[in-house]
Structures are given as structure tokens and as C-alpha cells.
Write a protein that binds this DNA or RNA. Structure first.
Lengths: 105, 105
DNA sequence: CTTTTAGGTAAGTTTTGACTTACCGTAAGC
DNA sequence: GCTTACGGTAAGTCAAAACTTACCTAAAAG
């Protein structure tokens, strides 16, 4: 079930880079934070947003928390976009057919 | 070339509904605005964001401007997500192989 | 030519969200 | 036990984004 939240999660520059890095390799919060100029708590907050959106998941490992991309979340977004694309395609096909265009919704 | 802007465009509740409606059928600004509780200028501003992100395009029709989904824009997002998904898959496969997990980036 | 319809843009306000510092809990190591 | 490393959460600040009203231009209709 993809909604606004999911897209909002990827709408931020830092979160974009976070998920990019996690896609290459699962990482701990501290290790992740070391690549950024913002504070560690800021990274934690970004991870919460990504987690709430279902785009990442955590696994505890001793005192560390290892974050990784949740592939299902990505797949769900893809599916949503597929739907949009197909609908737009159908609408386009219909519009091409009935060249008498009314605007009445 | 999908970036933060593209996701930000779909990160808003109203823009989400706008593109949903446009996917069903291309619509004029006024016709679109009639379905929302916010003002018409607000809709115009949202359409600008969507347009700048390459997700919709306009066609002038007399005094009206008909907005429709730009399928290429949607396709580009899909491609981006594919990349993420594949990278995460590779990372997962590698992690499964080398069960000795180091955190050194 | 005047009027109406359609919609983009500017300026100002309010709401949201990204950051900071400070603090607290938990697991491992001595 | 105490201490250190790792991170989540709270409270407050500042900037960005989403609205509003007011205004202006362009095409069609009379």
C-alpha cells in the first residue's frame, strides 16, 4: 500500500543518499552518520522516516543496529507507479480514440 | 534522470490526488480544482511542481490548459527504483555469502 | 471594442519539517 | 558492579513549502 509517506521518505536529499548507501551495503547508524555532515541524531530521525515508510528495516547486532533496504517497500512503489503508468496509458488511448474531448468529470 | 525533486512532487497529499486524477483522464485546471477544497491558485502551484518534475505536461486548448500525466516521467522513476532494488538484492546476496560481517565502509 | 472565462504569478502568512543540543536506556567489556 | 560505545527520543529553533488574496494577461463570445 504505497501512499504519500513513501514518496516523502525519498523526497529528502539526505534520505536519498542514505538509502543509496544502504542499497550498496547494510550499515550501522554510526557508520552511516560518519559519511554525512549532519549530526547522528539527525540520521536517526531520517532512518525513522524511512523505516515508517517501510523502505528500510533494522536488525540488532550487539550494541549496534544494522539498517538495510527493505526490498518489498521498493517493490511496492514500483507497483504503484506501474498502476499510474497503465492508467495514463489507457486514458491516452481513449483520448486518441474519441477526438471529441469533453472536460466534464 | 530521477532525483529528489521527482519524489518530492509525489510527496504531497494533494499532488498525489492530482496525478491520480490526471492518470484517469486529462483535465483542465479549473475542472481539477473543483474536486479540491483548496483554492485554484494552489492547484496551479501544485501543477507547476509536478510539471517541473517532468511528471505532467500541458496542452493549450482555446482558453483552457489541459494537463495530462507524462508517462516518461513515471517510467524514469520506475527505472530508478529498479536500480535501488537490484543493488539491494546484490548487497543481500553478498551479505548472505560472507557471514563474517564487518561494518567498515 | 467590451465582457467573460480561464489560469498563471506575486506577496504575505502559517504550517510543516529538518536540524541542533541535551538526555536517557541498553548491551558489551573490563 | 562500573564504564564505554551505540543510538533512540525530547524540546526548541530556523528554514522551506503550502496556502491565501490580489492582480494581471490572453483567448473567445457578445
Amino acid at each position: 500500500m504505497t501512499n504519500t509517506t513513501t514518496f516523502a521518505a525519498l523526497a529528502d536529499k539526505h534520505r536519498h543518499e542514505i538509502i543509496q548507501r544502504l542499497a550498496q551495503k547494510p550499515l550501522s547508524v554510526g557508520s552511516l552518520a560518519s559519511h554525512f555532515s549532519i549530526s547522528r541524531p539527525a540520521i536517526s530521525q531520517h532512518l525513522k522516516v524511512l523505516s515508517d515508510a517501510g523502505l528500510v528495516h533494522v536488525r540488532q547486532e550487539g550494541t549496534r543496529r544494522i539498517y538495510a533496504v527493505n526490498r518489498q517497500g521498493i517493490a511496492d512503489m514500483r507497483t504503484y507507479l506501474d498502476g499510474l503508468w497503465n492508467d495514463a496509458f489507457a486514458a491516452y488511448a481513449e483520448a486518441a480514440q474519441t477526438l471529441s474531448e469533453k472536460d466534464t468529470p
